[in-house]
């Protein structure tokens, strides 16, 4: 691995100075689980890294009046095992617990999983159905972006040079909300998603507000409004089939070394149906 410099600021002001060093590419570093392999392979270049783990608030995981605050450097293993997250934001815990291996989950952060912006990342689809809001900070101040507007393409986000994701805010779903994250991969252990589906049903006006997000089948995660609309009217077997077909229509998968688009289309439908069914099962209980 070729040399680079390392900075570890304790304040945001200091961090922004490092990130905007003239003539230098300074890479914000959280868990390093994506950075080290990508840098080593030459996919990412950097003159230096700016370790953001000592910045205020970025390691906090707590409930606030606005909802759950997940600091950018909160670990996947913390999300997966937090009783608070399990109690109210279960679908996020489900996504976090299938990221990589235990060792990776003990270093990988939600901020990193977001900013790497891999289409097959496992926390974005849950964040999509939870209507999370991403909080960004720069010298110019703070801004908030709905997670559904955060990703712009494969490995591209709205984050500007000199700007940091400090965390996400996730509104607290009403009591009785049920969610499921399903992932299909080649191997059962530590593999990337070929297709993933997050489904959430939140009680509303005596019925349910359904939300569905897909991962790994488009340049960014996508919501499936057509399917959501079908289910929000009713979730009998026929509607579930309809919704699954709507998901298949919405997906825009590619063919790569992991899978063909043909198979991915099929799996979007079958996996959506399966995930919706298991949410429906839970609702019946």
């Amino acid at each position: 691995m070729q040399p680079f410099d390392y900075y570890k600021p304790k304040t945001f002001e200091e961090a922004f100075d490092y990130l905007t060093l003239p003539g230098k590419t300074v890479f914000p570093l959280a868990g390093a689980t994506d950075f080290i392999p990508s840098y080593r392979d030459g996919v990412w270049q950097a003159d230096a890294v700016c370790d953001i783990k000592a910045l205020p608030g970025v390691r906090d995981l707590r409930e606030t009046p606005e909802g759950l605050w997940v600091g950018a450097c909160v670990l996947m293993s913390e999300l997966a095992r937090s009783p608070l997250v399990r109690a109210h934001w279960e679908v996020l815990a489900q996504g976090a617990e299938v990221v990589g291996s235990e060792q990776v989950r003990n270093r990988a952060t939600i901020g990193g999983n977001m900013c790497t912006a891999s289409p097959c990342a496992d926390t974005p689809p849950p964040l999509y159905v939870l209507d999370a809001v991403v909080v960004l900070k720069s010298k110019a101040g703070e801004r908030r972006v709905p997670v559904t507007e955060f990703f712009t393409f494969v490995r591209k986000t709205v984050v500007q040079k000199g700007e940091l994701v400090t965390g996400v805010i996730i509104p607290k779903p009403p009591a009785g909300t049920v969610g499921e994250y399903h992932k299909l991969s080649r191997r059962q252990g530590c593999d990337l998603s070929l297709v993933s589906v997050a489904v959430l049903a939140a009680p509303r006006n005596g019925g349910y507000d359904w939300r569905i997000a897909l991962g790994a089948v488009a340049p960014t995660p996508i919501r499936v409004p057509d399917a959501e609309a079908i289910l929000s009217k009713g979730w009998d077997a026929a509607s579930i089939d309809e919704a699954a077909k709507a998901a298949e229509k919405t997906a825009k998968p590619i063919t790569d070394v992991r899978s063909s688009d043909v198979y991915r289309y099929e799996m979007v439908r079958n996996l959506t149906r399966r995930a919706v069914r298991s949410v429906a099962e839970k609702l019946k209980k």
């Binding site: 080649r186 191997r187 059962q188 252990g189 530590c190 593999d191 990337l192 070394v257 992991r258």
Partner: peptide, 11 residues
């Protein structure tokens, strides 16, 4: 090993 997967303990 990302795309040449060998069996893990889960497999």
């Amino acid at each position: 090993l990302v795309d040449y997967k060998i069996a893990t303990v889960m497999d």
